[in-house]
Design a protein around this nucleic acid. Structure first.
Length: 281
DNA sequence: CTCCAGGAGTCAT
DNA sequence: ATGACTCATGGA
């Protein structure tokens, strides 16, 4: 077992996990189990610090996963000095958020499932998919299910996915998995594209619209220059920014232009603040 | 019962 | 370019 210890001033595990960027995690007694692709770790805050425990040889993976090389104090400072009061308040309250480096495929598939759905149910569906289609891996002597490979999801097919509770999204996931598995869609090539082209390529997949593409770009490709606009952000825009647009795409463009290279992380501060901390996930 | 959830595709203006 | 309608599913 390996252990990463770091300062907790700008790394709060609960905030990082509960702000909607990741679905595969569970609260334990003194921390959180976090599942990423075919690995699991245990993360917690304690006495002003943060710790991540993982299997031997995975420290580098999780160091990058939690984006521990980046200076999130600088993001918080930028938000506080922006003169944007709702943003400054949200950043102060959520200063422990970090944008994870999740696997591109897992992120894309997860946010395909997320459309017109709620977070507890998304978590349930994804856990079910892992149990049915994912392999097993071990952490701390316990067995956990991995996120399924695109090939496995493609083999499952739309009917099986529909039975797993995906509803009308089953065809979308099956189609995307098939294109990725066959090589017709290359996530590796997509990763080399500038953000706008990356989003365009993602949106060429059926079922991937503006919102899902933005989430995949931010959470799966670590592009901070997008601002995913969901129903909560629309509400925030109307109530706290006095905006009069109603189209989510225009609202996303408004914030993306406003916040530039910080749009993604600022979006997480605002999303978490608007959705509220006390919510059961 | 209706409404909503980290929306997107399709078709009619 | 914009607007309504529809697409499963479960919880409130």
């Amino acid at each position: 077992m390996e252990k990463i210890e770091t300062d907790g001033a700008f790394f709060n595990v609960e905030q990082t996990l509960s702000c909607g960027q990741v679905f595969r995690w569970e609260r334990e007694e003194n921390g959180f189990l976090v599942h990423a692709e075919d690995k699991t770790c245990f993360a917690y805050n304690e006495g002003g610090g943060a710790c991540v425990c993982c299997e031997d040889g995975q420290a580098e993976y999780f160091y990058r996963y939690f984006d521990l090389a980046a200076d999130y104090g600088a993001y918080v400072r930028a938000a506080e000095e922006s003169g944007d009061q709702p943003l400054a308040r949200a950043a102060r309250a959520g200063k422990g958020i970090r944008i994870l480096n999740q696997g591109a495929a897992e992120t894309l598939f997860s946010f395909l499932v997320s459309q017109n759905n709620n977070i507890p149910r998304i978590k349930g569906i994804l856990n079910g998919l892992c149990r049915q289609a994912g392999g097993e891996h071990v952490f701390g002597g316990r067995k956990f299910f991995s996120f399924p490979a695109a090939e496995t999801l493609a083999d499952f097919g739309a009917e099986t996915l529909r039975a797993a509770g995906l509803g009308y999204r089953a065809e979308y996931l099956a189609g995307a998995a098939e294109k990725i598995a066959s090589g017709a869609f290359s996530l590796r090539e997509a990763a080399a594209l500038p953000t706008e082209e990356l989003c365009g390529k993602l949106r060429s997949l059926k079922g991937v619209g503006k919102k899902v593409a933005d989430c995949a770009a931010l959470f799966g490709f670590h592009r901070f220059d997008v601002f995913p606009a969901d129903t909560w952000i629309v509400k925030l825009y109307k109530e706290d920014y006095g905006g009069k647009e109603t189209d989510a795409a225009k609202i996303a463009a408004f914030f993306a232009a406003r916040y530039g290279k910080y749009a993604g992380i600022f979006q997480q501060y605002l999303f978490r603040e608007k959705r509220g901390e006390g919510r059961k996930l």
